[in-house]
Amino acid sequence: MPVERWGDEGLRDLQYLLPAALRAEPQSPPMAVSDGTELPVSPVSPELGHAVGISPGFNSVLHMVRRVAPTNATVLFLGESGVGKEVFARMLHRMSARNNKPFVAVNCAAIPEQLMESELFGAERGAYTGATQSRIGRFERANGGTLFLDEIGTLSSGAQGNLLRALQEGEIERLGDTQTRHVDVRVIAATNVDLREEVAAGRFREDLFFRLNVFPIRIVPLRERREDIPLLLMHFLAKFNQLHNQRLSGFTQRAVDAVMSYHWPGNIRELENVVERGVILSTGNTAIDAPQLFTSGEQFYSKQYTVGSQGGLVKADPAQLLCTEKNDEAERISRTVSSLVLGEDEPQSGASLDEVETFMLKKALERANGNVAAAARILGITRPQMVYRLKSRNITHHAQ
Rank of each mutant, 00 (worst) to 15 (best):
F240C: 03
S249M: 10
T252Q: 04
Q246T: 14
H263I: 04
V220C: 08
P230L: 12
F240S: 05
E227H: 09
P265Q: 09
Q242S: 15
R225Y: 11
R247E: 15
W264M: 12
H244A: 08
L231S: 05
L232C: 13
F251Y: 10
Q253T: 14
L232R: 09
T252G: 14
R254L: 05
S261R: 09
Y262D: 00
D257E: 14
L233C: 12
I229T: 02
Q242H: 13
L231K: 03
A258W: 03
K239T: 01
R254Y: 05
Q246V: 09
A258N: 04
H235D: 04
L222K: 00
V220F: 06
F236Y: 15
D228Q: 08
Q246Y: 07
W264N: 01
R218H: 13
I219F: 08
H263M: 04
R225D: 11
R218M: 06
G250L: 11
I219W: 00
L233E: 10
H235K: 05
A258L: 02
P265W: 06
F236W: 04
H263L: 08
M260G: 04
V259K: 02
R223C: 10
R223V: 08
H244R: 15
T252R: 14
V220N: 12
A255R: 02
D228V: 09
R225M: 11
A255Q: 09
P221F: 09
